[in-house]
């Protein structure tokens, strides 16, 4: 017993020490400075400032609205793609190619992907050219610097997460439930609504919450596609640390975003667990 304790301590010492020094300690520094002043007195003024300032409510509202729309569109685009890959494609090689196409963007920097959309969505970009050729618009539509532009970019970045989450849920559904439903004379549409959808809902919902959390904390994509016209929450944090140099206030903003994200991820984890138990 003593020997195994020593072994455990030996194994865990380095990783725990590293995480304590370079993860927990920095986070503790932020947490502490969010409730102190330069003179090290305790204060909640920084949080009060976030809550009382109307500008922050506007930024929070914009951030949430964008994240919510991103999540909805991601589901609408990602669900059919996941369904197609799991249920419709029968040729293994094609599915393999498709999975690679879904993952390559995940392995490419946010900056590269957002830059791609900066090029595509510009006044003379491919999207406007196509829209004008098709006669859908007479003059180029302004995408950059609008919420629509940010949405297109964020959905692009986050849709692979939905495809993987929903795809995994669909792939692990035991098809005997659906067969039983069909054997009992239920049509395909009703079987989908009352059998398949509820079975893959936990996977889909936890995927959606992850997407929402990532959209709320996104920085690079909104920064590039907003063209300085729209501010989201993570930009406020970056401003405090890079140009305003108010570390206390930046810390309070950071902790707010952190708590928000952890709560969302916690909910997603609960739903995922419940789904696994039910399955």
């Amino acid at each position: 017993m003593a020997a195994s304790r020593t072994a455990l301590a030996l194994l865990l010492f380095a990783p725990l020490a590293f995480f304590a020094a370079f993860f927990l300690a920095p986070m503790a520094v932020v947490a502490i400075s969010s409730v102190t002043t330069d003179g090290d007195t305790l204060t909640f003024a920084h949080y009060a400032r976030i809550l009382l300032d109307e500008y922050h409510w506007d930024v929070l509202w914009v951030t949430f609205r964008i994240a919510l729309m991103t999540t909805l569109i991601c589901m609408l685009v990602g669900f059919p793609l996941a369904w197609y890959l799991v249920r419709i494609v029968r040729w293994r090689t094609w599915r393999r190619i498709c999975v690679i196409l879904v993952i390559v963007p995940l392995f490419t920097s946010n900056i590269v992907r957002s830059f791609g959309w900066m090029v595509l969505l510009g006044r003379t970009g491919l999207v406007n050219q196509a829209l004008m050729t098709l006669g859908l618009t007479e003059r180029p539509i302004r995408f950059l610097g609008t919420e629509t532009g940010i949405l297109i970019g964020l959905v692009y970045i986050l849709v692979p997460f939905v495809v993987l989450a929903v795809g995994n849920a669909l792939a692990t559904i035991d098809n005997s439930y659906e067969e039983a439903s069909a054997d009992l004379g239920v049509g395909p549409a009703r079987t989908f609504w009352f059998v398949t959808l509820p079975l893959c809902l936990p996977g889909a919902v936890s995927g959606a919450i992850i997407v929402f959390a990532l959209a709320v904390s996104a920085y690079v994509t909104p920064a590039l596609l907003s063209g300085g016209q729209i501010t989201v929450f993570s930009m406020l944090i970056f401003q405090q640390y890079s140009s305003v140099f108010d570390f206390h206030y930046g810390a309070a903003l950071s902790i707010t975003l952190l708590v928000l994200t952890l709560v969302l991820v916690g909910i997603a984890g609960r739903i995922g667990d419940a789904g696994r138990r039910a399955a």
Partner: peptide, 19 residues
Amino acid sequence: IRIVALAALAYLVLPLVVI
């Protein structure tokens, strides 16, 4: 579903090809 899925794949590939 096929149409939406193929459009989604095109959407995923387009920026990478353009760059």
